[in-house]
Design a binder for these strands. Sequence first.
DNA 1: CCCGGATTAGAATAAAAATTCCAAAATCAT
DNA 2: ATGATTTTGGAATTTTTATTCTAATCCGGG
Lengths: 285, 285
Amino acid sequence: MNDGLPKSSNGTTPLTVAAFFKQLGTRADRLPKRLKQCADFIAANPDRVAVSTVAELAEAAGLQPSAVMRFCKEMGFEGFSQMQKLFRSDYAQNWPDYPTRLAQLRDHGTDSPSALLAEFVDVGRASLENLLATIEPVSLQQAVDVLVRADTIHMVGFRRAFPVTAYLAYAFEKMSVPAMLHSGVANINMQPLIRPKDAVIAITFSPYTQMTLDIASEARKAGASLVAITDVVTSPLAKLKATHLLVSELDVGAFRSLSASLSLSIALAVAVGTQRNKAQGTHDG
Amino acid sequence: MNDGLPKSSNGTTPLTVAAFFKQLGTRADRLPKRLKQCADFIAANPDRVAVSTVAELAEAAGLQPSAVMRFCKEMGFEGFSQMQKLFRSDYAQNWPDYPTRLAQLRDHGTDSPSALLAEFVDVGRASLENLLATIEPVSLQQAVDVLVRADTIHMVGFRRAFPVTAYLAYAFEKMSVPAMLHSGVANINMQPLIRPKDAVIAITFSPYTQMTLDIASEARKAGASLVAITDVVTSPLAKLKATHLLVSELDVGAFRSLSASLSLSIALAVAVGTQRNKAQGTHDG
DNA sequence: CCCGGATTAGAATAAAAATTCCAAAATCAT
DNA sequence: ATGATTTTGGAATTTTTATTCTAATCCGGG
């Protein structure tokens, strides 16, 4: 008699949170009292589903755990755990494992450059969204203040970080902010050029470039201010007592997006340029 | 003997996620190997803590559940559950979706750094979406073909386009593709190095850099292939009979986003690198 | 007012997860 | 090298959590 299928739902398990809410919208009124109550609560507090236990959710919604269970089944899930899995994966947009996806790419997608492009665009977008969610306005403001006060701004970043410093150099030049790109050309040591009243923008991501770390810590010793752009708090750069801005870029295989780092940098540069020129303007006039 | 207190942590339980990361930053490198590994993983994927079990987290970080437990205690928590509770409470506040978040940052004041950042992120995102919509898979495939066949790849792009060519140079180097960055250092004319069997990636956007146009057209005359990355069909670069890829970047004031150009370039580079290495592999074997 | 199906609350059970424990490795000072 | 000390991996244990079950309750129609 009982075939193990959900009793009275329409039988289809929602595959996205959006689909779930769509279904909820059409069916909510026809649900019995307690299930309606559950529906309303979840609609009003979707974020709680991912991080609560059935008991907590039930308590918060003013009902019994079993009522929540019945609701889950009614919506087409096997149980609460399955529903929660959906909400958790939705929250985690940031971390579909890209290592796995790269492996998949190796297998079939690589032949098509367009597929690869779609991948990089996707990753870039996710990185940008993530940047917005994680940057602290206060730290950013601090970084701007430090750079506005500096005599000369030095930009240090090699390999993957070099495009970022190069773009900063371009932006500062356009706004006539005295800024020096440490490019490593001719292996000339530019470190002695960093004076106490200067500021250094040091950029490096895991695996960290030793030269960047060296220049940054030397600059610190010399008394210059430091703005560090790096990936995580455990980065060696973050440890030098300095203003630090954290950017975590997602990657496709071995290559990381630079979208977030570049956007952060250009915003920083424009903010600094604007303020410096404003100050100079009032000073001159 | 054992009084039940945490063994070697400084004893204070972090009360906010920010405090947790601050502590992590100062203590991370004094931790033993596995705990450091755990610290790094959590620093890089803080969002996972709220929605994973110890087992999942351990698996993802490549260690044993017990190592994660030890880490939690080391950081001053009673156990994983307590640490997770902290991350979950923080999670609730960070929920605002993209549009809300954008609005919040903008509200910080019209020309505050955060507002600028929000602006650049938004523009970057739009550029990426636009890129995906406008790039012709056929042209992209053509560009890849041209570059796969080339002996040496030359990258030409100055000023605003320079970060892009620099990133290309980095990517090609990593994949062992023979590629030469025309950087303009020492004002040495690298044009004669472009041989008939080579290919040139020329990048310039309005207002077009004369030097890039010159090198591109000379290269064409010398019989080398040309892949042009530029903004519109009327660009002087697009007129040289060559494969061209069009990227229109949006701007914030005088500064354009580079997100789209970079994503396109890196996708191009990876596609080329993969194919060249595949070809070489079969050839060698 | 009472019957029959649907719905519910709460306890009972099963499953999953966190936490502890200890022997084996690794590291370090001597 | 050698022994003491720290660190680690994995299994055993305990606790928490999800899920099921059943008796009680509700509710609409005769």
